[in-house]
Simulated assay, not measured.
Amino acid sequence: MITKMKTELLQNNRQLQLLRYPERQNETLQAWDAGDEYLIEHVEKLNLPANSHLVIINDSFGALSCWFSERYQVSMLSDSYIAQQATLANLARNQCHQVRLLTTMDPVPSDAAAVLVKIPKSNRHLTWLLDSIRQQLNADIPVISVNKAREIHTSTLKLFEKHLGKTHTSLAQKKHRLVFSVADATPVESNPYVEWPVDGENYWLKNLPNVYSGENLDQGARFILPHLPQDPTSKQIIDLGCGNGVLSIKLGQLNPYASIIGVDESHMAIASATLNIKSALGDEFDFEGRVNNCLDGFDSSSADLIVCNPPFHQQLAVTDHIAWQMFCDAKQVLKPKGKLMVIGNRHLGYDNKLARLFGKANLRQIAVNKKFVILQATK
Results as ranks from 00 to 15, higher is better:
residue 84 Q to N: 07
residue 235 K to F: 02
residue 195 E to D: 14
residue 115 V to P: 03
residue 109 P to A: 08
residue 293 N to F: 00
residue 332 Q to R: 14
residue 85 Q to G: 06
residue 342 V to F: 05
residue 91 L to K: 09
residue 330 A to D: 00
residue 205 L to R: 15
residue 51 N to C: 09
residue 205 L to Y: 09
residue 248 S to E: 04
residue 1 M to G: 09
residue 356 R to C: 03
residue 272 S to G: 00
residue 345 N to I: 10
residue 213 S to G: 15
residue 53 H to A: 04
residue 280 A to N: 07
residue 258 A to R: 01
residue 308 C to T: 13
residue 90 N to M: 06
residue 283 D to M: 08
residue 339 K to R: 12
residue 184 D to V: 06
residue 117 V to G: 03
residue 3 T to F: 09
residue 24 R to T: 01
residue 104 T to V: 14
residue 132 S to A: 15
residue 303 A to K: 04
residue 153 H to D: 04
residue 272 S to N: 05
residue 345 N to Q: 11
residue 60 S to D: 14
residue 71 R to N: 13
residue 2 I to M: 03
residue 250 K to S: 13
residue 78 S to M: 05
residue 39 L to K: 04
residue 307 V to E: 07
residue 270 I to P: 06
residue 186 T to V: 14
residue 46 L to P: 03
residue 349 G to D: 05
residue 69 S to N: 03
residue 127 T to N: 11
residue 55 V to R: 04
residue 55 V to H: 05
residue 199 D to L: 10
residue 227 H to C: 03
residue 357 L to Q: 09
residue 243 G to A: 04
residue 176 H to K: 15
residue 214 G to N: 07
residue 156 T to I: 02
residue 287 F to V: 06
residue 311 P to H: 10
residue 2 I to G: 07
residue 153 H to P: 04
residue 234 S to C: 14
residue 222 R to M: 12
residue 272 S to K: 08
residue 275 L to V: 12
residue 207 N to A: 00
residue 99 V to A: 07
residue 151 E to D: 11
residue 316 L to Q: 14
residue 234 S to W: 02
residue 187 P to E: 01
